[in-house]
């Protein structure tokens, strides 16, 4: 495996007010790798969804909780890691959303994980100690 270089990190608190900043952070670095506008848009959205899920589900909208975002690349891939110290996400219990059914029941949400999987090439969830990590990979 090639050595990762170009590692950039950003620490933010879990707040939707930071969403634009987080999106711009990943987009700026993805641009430097020569990704297409469409691919950069996909990465922006995947990171938005992952960070929003942390705010809403891992931290249940409790403010001022820490989130660490790290982005790195090598010759073959771009990876983005987002870490939190909140409640872990049980990926095994996740079902693909039935949008028609959700509309009927006036439910919203549950679409983020589905979108992330569609937008990125590989998505891993890790738990280490009290830390959760979602690691999203895009092949270059």
């Amino acid at each position: 495996m090639a050595t990762s270089n170009n590692i950039h990190s950003l620490s933010v608190e879990a707040s939707t007010s930071q969403l634009a900043k987080v999106r711009d952070f990943v987009a700026e670095h993805a641009e430097r790798l020569g990704l297409s506008e469409k691919e950069i848009g996909n990465i922006r959205l995947a990171v938005d969804e992952a960070y929003t899920n942390i705010i809403k589900h891992a931290y249940k909208n409790i403010p001022a909780k820490p989130v660490e975002i790290e982005l790195g690349s090598d010759n073959s891939q771009l990876w983005i890691s987002i870490k939190d110290e909140g409640e872990s996400f049980d990926v095994g219990a996740y079902n693909e959303p039935d949008i028609r059914e959700r509309i009927k029941n006036k439910q919203r949400g549950g679409m983020g994980v589905y979108l992330i999987r569609k937008l990125m090439d590989n998505v891993q969830y890790n738990r280490s100690g009290h830390m959760n990590e979602i690691r999203m990979i895009k092949h270059l």
Partner: peptide, 17 residues
């Protein structure tokens, strides 16, 4: 310029009504 699923969720919540 941009929409995330939280934006789509708003449309989901009101269309039935």
């Amino acid at each position: 310029d941009y929409i995330a699923s939280a934006g789509l969720g708003v449309f989901m919540a009101y269309i039935e009504d």
